[in-house]
Design a protein around this nucleic acid. Structure first.
Ligand SMILES: [Mn+2]
Ligand SMILES: [Mn+2]
Ligand SMILES: [Zn+2]
Ligand SMILES: [Zn+2]
Lengths: 151, 151
DNA sequence: TATCTAAATAATAATTATTATCGTTTATGA
DNA sequence: TCATAAACGATAATAATTATTATTTAGATA
């Protein structure tokens, strides 16, 4: 099936990345990467750990943290800007931005090409060199507006 | 002097806010608020505590945390979006945005009226109601570029 | 394919950031 | 001044993350 094929391609790409970056391709790393590539909800380390336990029953939470840290340092994934205490992660991909619901805490992607193409205010140059620009919108999502909210 | 007068006005405004919100005006709260209103570096709770100890030697770190939480719930201050583990705070003021240096970690304000006035992408409406929009720019500041960095 | 070794893992302990508990102090209103 | 609920400080507890270490394993080599 298509899904099956996609998995295969993803795995090949990941193996390639490991070879390039010079780190070992382990089952744990592959599954953590897969999980993050498939997720759209910017999971925390604990969430990833919980989701993978059925498939990798011996996986330690520490390994999840270590692996996420490794991936981040090599640019395969990024941490999301939040005001929460738990770090939230996502696979590095196309430039995009985030909507955060103040009630349920869900973090949703959105794309905004007009913004991506807009030049920064000129005085930014005096500050230094900018390499990434993020927009975060806070508000209340439709689901929470209608019901009374908490995830 | 002018500085002295400003302090006085600030204190009056703060006392007013306490009365309105219905919470007690204590020395601790006043000093924490003052410190945050004067700071431009988005200090963490511990930083505020350290700065106030000379003036309030019995101030507990716990009180700083509790007070910041109170202020935040009443909209007097806000947490800053970061990927750090420590929460960083600022007094609520004019709409503005942040530059974060990847090397030294300093968070600098910048203003961008063009952005503030720009309409959001239309499909955002389907998500819900947005009440705040933040831009965060990541990069390397001039100081770090020139020297070798770390705060 | 069997062997070797540095890197990675899991278990555990430690650290860091934040919040809760509780007895004492204090701001505020009668 | 007095009463009282709110806030404080000391301390303990919890939550999130990182360090330590003995064991396992990916990947290189013979
Ligand atoms: Mn995202
Ligand atoms: Mn700011
Ligand atoms: Zn919501
Ligand atoms: Zn810097």
């Amino acid at each position: 099936m298509i899904e099956h094929h996609r998995q295969h391609v993803l795995q090949a790409q990941f193996e390639q990345a490991c070879r390039e970056k010079g780190f070992k391709m382990t089952q744990q790393r592959l599954e953590i990467f897969r999980e993050l590539a498939a997720a759209s909800d910017h999971p925390a380390a604990e969430t990833i750990h919980r989701r993978l336990l059925p498939k990798l029953p011996t996986l330690s939470l520490d390994t999840v943290y270590r692996t996420l840290s490794t991936f981040e340092h090599h640019g395969l994934i990024t941490k999301v800007d939040t005001t929460e205490s738990q770090a939230r992660f996502e696979a590095a991909g196309e430039e995009h931005h985030h909507l955060i619901c103040r009630k349920c805490g869900r973090i949703t992607d959105f794309y905004w090409q007009r913004f991506d193409e807009t030049a920064l205010p000129p005085d930014i140059d005096r500050w230094g060199r900018v390499s990434k620009k993020n927009v975060t919108l806070y508000g209340i999502c439709k689901e929470c507006e209608e019901s009374g909210g908490r995830r």
